[in-house]
């Protein structure tokens, strides 16, 4: 059912729902993850799980990861499967409207990046660039639940 959540980013509070993104991802999770044969590397969790990042600037990581998915990931995930492509479109467009909501925190200067999150984001980009772009994009899309689990 519709599950609106108040996400706390420091003093900034944003009402967002990941329900539709979750539903879209769950519908294609098995398909997408089956296209990622590399078990030994995770884009978001290597070397440390995203969950280990307890940094106060959660907003910074969330905001930059939204940019990462919108700018780098979704466009390289086109498949031969129309159903999968439509779900990816749904997720990508939902990311856009969530990015807009997160923008409120940026306007209130609540989305600053500390050293820990800057390091983590650098690591994620390094993991991404360590693979060819299609593999990296598909792997990142397959890890969307890692981001959602951490956000929620």
């Amino acid at each position: 059912t519709a599950g609106n959540k108040i996400f706390h980013f420091g003093a900034c509070r944003v009402s967002m729902s990941t329900t539709e993104i979750r539903a879209g991802f769950t519908a294609i999770k098995a398909n997408i993850q089956a296209r990622d044969p590399i078990r030994t590397l995770s884009i978001l969790s290597y070397p440390h799980s995203l969950h280990k990042v307890k940094s106060p600037d959660r907003c910074c990581i969330t905001h930059h990861l939204f940019d990462f998915y919108v700018d780098k990931v979704f466009k390289h995930c086109k498949t031969e499967d129309s159903f999968v492509n439509r779900k990816i479109s749904s997720i990508a467009n939902s990311f856009l409207s969530m990015k807009r909501k997160l923008g409120q925190c940026q306007e209130q200067n609540q989305c600053l990046c500390g050293q820990e999150s800057t390091e983590k984001l650098k690591q994620i980009l390094a993991n991404y660039e360590g693979l060819n772009v299609t593999s990296a994009a598909m792997k990142s899309l397959g890890e969307l639940d890692i981001l959602l689990d951490w956000m929620e």
Partner: peptide, 18 residues
């Protein structure tokens, strides 16, 4: 259909509704 994402980030691509 074409969402804002397709318009702004994916070369104005269109997606068929099967």
């Amino acid at each position: 259909f074409q969402g804002e994402y397709e318009r702004v980030y994916a070369n104005e691509s269109w997606i068929p509704i099967s």
